[in-house]
Nucleic acid binder design. Structure first.
Lengths: 134, 134
DNA sequence: TTTGGTGCAAATTCTTTGCATCTCT
DNA sequence: AGAGATGCAAAGAATTTGCACCAAA
């Protein structure tokens, strides 16, 4: 597989559309189920293969932090996330921390920095309400 | 299982010792193999169960970022990590970014922040050497 | 003697892969 | 024809769990 000539199949297009249209950072399984509403015969294998290809093409980014499941983000620009420790929901954070961190990364441990991932943890508004009594 | 009376078994003690003594942030499998040198009959199940308990007790923290495997860190104080994108090695970062980030986390999205995880990506000194030509 | 822990093996969960078939060029 | 893609099912990898037995309080 030389993989420099990707085709935009209906499956790939709809997977990408679903990811672009939500900010829910769905898991592969969630993508599968939402795409299935439009393409009832699509398989998990196809979903995984396309998510991988879209990630390689940098149309999509993977969020992998805290849980067992990968989550996929249709916004491939660098940004931060915040994850609810109660329900697992992941939201985007505003861009303002990025510059700050970049400016202050002065790591003298010999690494050559190419990227970074920040996830904040906390209770989302809904869960805060639900767990209010505690 | 009410789990408020933990016992310090030899298995648990040695797992913790191994984690405290290294800065390599081993995977469960790596813990299993190093503990096996002292306790040849220990099982993976026991390793996983103890890693989970030690994490709950906050003796140990889990690093889960970028890869499929969890990694375990015998340093349970909050600190940052840097991960080599080539070999997967994870090192600690100095503490200096923590205060900075804490001071500047002003998230107005309704979350109640309880923690955060930052992993930097890059090439470790060894891999930088190896891949020098590129 | 009750509660927690262990080893072993089976089961789960998430993800990847092999394969025959299909679809674009 | 030939490369990429698909659906299906099986395989893999990492982790969790059920169970019978063991051990400390």
């Amino acid at each position: 597989m030389i993989m420099n000539n990707f085709r935009m199949t209906p499956q790939r297009r709809i997977i990408l559309e679903e990811l672009k249209k939500t900010r829910k950072h769905p898991t592969a399984d969630e993508v599968y189920h939402s795409v299935r509403k439009k393409l009832p015969d699509i398989s998990m294998g196809t979903v995984y293969r396309n998510l991988e290809i879209l990630t390689k093409q940098e149309e999509v980014q993977v969020i992998r932090n805290g849980g067992k499941k990968k989550r996929y983000d249709g916004n491939s620009t660098k940004h931060f996330h915040i994850k609810c420790t109660n329900c697992g929901r992941i939201d985007d954070l505003p861009e303002n921390l990025v510059g700050l961190i970049k400016k202050n990364i002065t790591v003298d441990c010999g690494y050559e920095i190419t990227g970074y991932s920040l996830v904040l943890y906390g209770l989302c508004p809904d869960c805060k309400k639900k767990l209010g009594g505690k």
